[in-house]
């Protein structure tokens, strides 16, 4: 029986490559990840609840979630516009614009963080203009959102772009010939096609925003109960050597990201069912 199974695999090296893969994955990722559950089990249920419902922790979750959500929504709007102009239009400098989209992946987050903070502080190039009309950006939730927009934009653009490239122009032309306006054609014909891809980008940008530390921590200013993000709370609990508290905060953050991704996945499956039956 066993021999038969082996014979089915024509290409050699399964045992070796599977072994190396599993060994490296376990050593570097799985075993350390398991520690978080070991450490969390050191807390009783009541202690756990007490840590994660403390006022600063709750406000940290709220800041991280609300800013990441706003940023991901803004990124959806500009992500669709950018993907659209990169796929459908020709204009000078298009290649450079396309190449720049990945900058937030290539630029170290700490560099982005200090650059954004200096730009949007009340004395900075951009912040100065807003300060004159009484709006502070750095050290407020607006600043946190801007940093999360910065870090999230490539996810949405790069999710939509390939789908838009493959989209058959026939439907658009048909819709146009039947007399639908450009706006109507976009929202009734094109948008449903790119929606699942947009949702993927939205989910990735959101997850990144919730967990993001480097680019956000500088511009956040870390005012207790106002602009402290959840990853910062983990960091400060670690610095006070409260390992179990840090674990509890991290565990809830992990669960939140996980649930959000599952939800988005479910919507996506639902959406693709609708579009596949409508064709």
């Amino acid at each position: 029986m066993n021999k038969k199974r082996h014979r089915k695999r024509v290409i050699p090296g399964f045992g070796l490559s599977m072994g190396v893969t599993l060994a490296m994955l376990s050593l570097i990722v799985l075993i350390p990840i398991a520690s978080i559950f070991v450490s969390a089990s050191g807390l009783s249920f009541n202690e756990f609840i007490k840590v994660v419902t403390a006022r600063d922790v709750m406000s940290g979750y709220q800041v991280s979630l609300s800013c990441a959500l706003t940023a991901a929504l803004i990124n959806c709007v500009f992500g669709v516009i950018l993907a659209w102009i990169l796929v459908r239009y020709e204009f000078p400098g298009k290649g450079v614009l396309d190449g720049l989209i990945e900058l937030p992946f290539a630029l170290p987050t700490a560099v982005a963080g200090i650059a954004l903070t200096s730009l949007y502080s009340d004395k900075g190039w951009i912040g100065h203009a807003f300060a004159q009309i009484g709006i502070s950006i750095a050290y407020t939730k607006i600043g946190i959102t801007i940093a999360m927009v910065f870090i999230g934009i490539p996810f949405v653009v790069r999710a939509i772009q390939p789908v838009l490239e493959k989209l058959d122009k026939q439907y658009e032309e048909a819709s146009h010939m039947l007399g639908a306006s450009g706006k109507r054609t976009f929202f009734r014909v094109i948008f449903p096609e790119i929606f699942p891809a947009m949702l993927t980008g939205f989910g990735l940008a959101l997850a990144r925003g919730i967990g993001e530390y480097g680019s956000v921590v500088f511009i956040a200013g870390n005012i207790p109960y106002e602009t402290q993000i959840a990853p910062l709370l983990i960091m400060s609990k670690l610095e006070q050597f409260k390992y179990q508290d840090a674990t509890a905060v991290a565990l809830v953050l992990l669960v939140i990201s996980f649930v959000l991704l599952l939800l988005i996945n479910a919507v996506q499956v639902h959406m693709s069912k609708i579009t596949s039956t409508s064709h």
Binding site: L25, V29, L30, I31, P32, I33, S35, I36, V38, S39, A207, I210, G211, E212, Y213, G214, P231, L232, I234, M235, L238, Y243, A246, T247, A250, L253, L254, S257, L261
Partner: peptide
């Protein structure tokens, strides 16, 4: 899915799990 885990979690949590494993309180 397991391989993609580091991509999905916050870098601060990545640091935390390493401290919890190899740090003074780590097993």
């Amino acid at each position: 899915t397991l391989i993609d885990i580091p991509f999905a979690i916050s870098p601060v949590i990545a640091g935390l799990v390493l401290v919890l494993t190899f740090g003074k309180i780590g097993w």
